[in-house]
Write a protein that binds this DNA or RNA. Sequence first.
DNA 1: CCCTTCTGGATGTATCATGCATCCAATGAC
DNA 2: GTCATTGGATGCATGATACATCCAGAAGGG
Lengths: 116, 116
Amino acid sequence: MGNLYRFVEPLILLELSRTPGASGYDLLERLTTHSLTGTTIDKAAVYRTLCLLESQGMAEVEHLDSVRGAGKKAYKLTRQGREHLVEWGAILGNLAKGLSDFSHDVSALESDSSLP
Amino acid sequence: MGNLYRFVEPLILLELSRTPGASGYDLLERLTTHSLTGTTIDKAAVYRTLCLLESQGMAEVEHLDSVRGAGKKAYKLTRQGREHLVEWGAILGNLAKGLSDFSHDVSALESDSSLP
DNA sequence: CCCTTCTGGATGTATCATGCATCCAATGAC
DNA sequence: GTCATTGGATGCATGATACATCCAGAAGGG
């Protein structure tokens, strides 16, 4: 049951929308607490998602000569990225409704007779 | 965005809990409308999930000599299966809450300034 | 009897998202 | 020079799914 979809893309889009100019590293820190599924989000997933978003025109990158470490990248959402986030908002809103119903249905069964 | 988790296992557990003795074919019919993600559920996913549930002791099978067609199978949840369904109920209830918050956060951004 | 269609069910293979481990580059501390 | 730290990327395996295909038995038409 630990195999749920982790919603990495929508979470990143939201975080980028809130803090434009964030790097992968920055996002990683913020998303530890943010995960929808109660688990943490993998380093690799974050970096790969950022690359993907860029290649799809959802995000733009700027190379920063950081004080420390290698070439840090600052990401910003494009208009397309913001639109995509809004789509995600709608989709996940619907999913939330469905899951909530599901959960209530299960609870109803429990309080019935059937369960231990 | 069509790549969400489809929640096949929990949906099947719930349906089996409601209609004990259902077959894969029966479930397929019911789950077309039931899907949480708005898409339909694949034949293959249903049959494979049923096999899995059986192999894990979540469901028991009885072979039926159906009037028509090949060996139909009637599935029933075991106690363990019912317990597993309850776990899913809790997990998906939490996820629903998180997704709902996410969706509201996105709506809040929209009504702000940032969006088109 | 042969052919088609329908009820069920199962399998093959590709893809996507992820987990875990590992690796690379630059930099400042020592 | 050596080493830990900041950032980032890659290799490989796995789980869940989509899509197509296949198999077996039963009815029905011809």
